[in-house]
Write a protein that binds this DNA or RNA. Structure first.
Lengths: 300, 300
DNA sequence: CTGGAGTGTTGCGAAAAAACGAACGGTACA
DNA sequence: TGTACCGTTCGTTTTTTCGCAACACTCCAG
């Protein structure tokens, strides 16, 4: 349906993504033969093969890598232009795409998104919850405008727009002995069974770090890649789990759970970073959303 | 003949450039009616008018400005991708486009270009000699990769890659009284008729500046926008003209002319700047050429 | 080693997109 | 008040793209 102008770019992008002409043809609602012709024409025009023909599909050549990167940058920038023109008409339309750590899915992101939509009703969102590595990958491949992630790997082509230091909280049932203790320290928690986020989740790195420098042996009874799983688990036993400060109201009972600060100074802090692909001009809605996100995260 | 993929982009670019569908259609070798359709389709697709229909032609709207800028950036970046792919094939093909001040047309630019072509025989050049304002304009409109210009106006979207300080020289006939004087000062020159570069040429600004702070009245007998004109003029009389150090062998007779340093300390120096459009990834040949230009200008 | 299931590719007729060519309606400027 | 230039519309023709069926090839399991 949409613009026939960048057809070939969409084609190439999709083939590179799924690694096969036939699969790409299917999701593009087109015949493999037609798609193949477009690829051949383009390769002839450029004077270079973009794909290695493999018996199992297509793999990008070096030239293909260059070209696909350009294609994706181009397509993303075209969306920016669209939103810029919509903005000119006073309509403020467009889509903001965010790739975020799982912890953001609970309170912060949904809340800010709702506030944003009250001011900009024409803007829609695409949120992809994934781990650190995937966030960077999504930024690199122009799949997403913004990355919101803990402990983002430093990298030359990623621009960190701002960071918020986050502390680790202990989460436990409301009737847990530590629930209303004066202070909660890490060694207190270690007397109880632990339910830990796995390495795909933010916070795990901090814990690993602590355990490595501590003589105490934790009793790990559950590891999971789901915060919800962990929370539901500790609700009805004496285990303790951990999560980032954000998304947890401190010292308040909620759903039978309570989150407490961990007082240890030795526990390194980690930062929540909002990042984008370096050098890429973002669509206006994304810029405005990032601004609102900054206000919300840094405390208005 | 070349790629049908970015046809519409080429169309829009050309219309914006010449300001008329009919003129653009002519240089694009299609009929005005066909061109008109493409514009209308695109405008409908974007949901915004790109041009104001005027009785004398088409003028860009605000949305059109945004779109055309994107189109030109896109087309320029596509050329970069082409050259990058050619480079991958070991061919080092491509075109380097330079917009330069007139003084560069004599010695520096041709010389460096020849050296460059000995190393990269597949690279061709496009050189446009023009004044300061046009250089910046050409950079902004993606017409040129590099700008080589005196006293470049500082501007947020222009990135100065490097600068070389240049002093003003007095140029006169080989038999001129000042030709072999021990030193040449500005006030010496003022005793003779002057042939001045006009305001479109580098160096004029320095002279204006000097005259404004001096009580001496210059005898201006010729103003011209052509260095060749000025040089040919003073060859056979007692007038003095001025030009930038570059492109003039100091204290050596050449073609019946000689160039002398001007000793005045009060005479401000000006810098020759090599610049590009900020944030724009340059084609590989342009980068390599700029590097060689830097070596040549800063003394290897 | 042989058949099946996956891949990219080719030839030809059909469909869709773009371009043509002539006529229309308007604004500016002499 | 023409005349000259502009963008635009309509019906037709040309070019480009697509679909369909068949082909050639590689891989892998039986």
């Amino acid at each position: 349906m949409p613009l026939p102008y960048l057809r070939i770019f969409r084609y190439i992008d999709e083939i590179a993504r799924v690694g096969s002409i036939r699969k790409a043809a299917e999701s593009l609602f087109i015949t493999p033969s037609a798609l193949d012709r477009r690829v051949q024409d383009l390769e002839e025009e450029l004077g270079a093969e973009l794909f290695e023909r493999h018996a199992r599909g297509m793999r990008l050549t070096a030239a293909g890598e260059i070209f696909v990167h350009h294609v994706r940058a181009q397509r993303a920038d075209f969306e920016r232009v669209r939103s810029e023109i919509e903005n000119l008409k006073g309509l403020r339309k467009g889509t903001v795409s965010v790739a975020a750590s799982q912890a953001m899915a609970f309170t912060v992101l949904p809340e800010v998104m709702n506030r944003f939509r009250q001011v900009n009703p024409g803007v829609s969102f695409m949120v992809k919850i994934c781990d650190h590595a995937s966030v960077v990958k999504a930024l690199r491949e122009f799949e997403t405008d913004l990355g919101v992630v803990y402990n983002i790997p430093k990298s030359a082509d990623i621009a960190i727009q701002f960071e918020v230091e986050q502390r680790l909280c202990a989460v436990m049932a409301e009737k847990h002995p530590l629930a209303h203790a004066n202070t909660v320290k890490m060694r207190d928690c270690l007397r109880y069974p632990l339910a830990l986020p796995d390495s795909t989740l933010g916070g795990r790195i901090l814990l690993e770090n602590y355990f490595a420098h501590s003589s105490l042996k934790p009793k790990i009874v559950l590891e999971s890649n789901s915060f919800e799983m962990l929370r539901n688990f500790v609700r009805s036993n004496d285990a303790v789990t951990f999560q980032i400060q954000i998304g947890a109201e401190l010292d308040q009972v909620k759903d039978g759970l309570i989150a407490r600060h961990i007082e240890d100074r030795s526990l390194a802090r980690q930062s929540l970073s909002v990042a984008q692909l370096k050098g890429r001009p973002l669509p206006l809605p994304a810029l405005r959303f990032m601004s609102m996100l900054r206000d919300a995260l840094t405390g208005k």
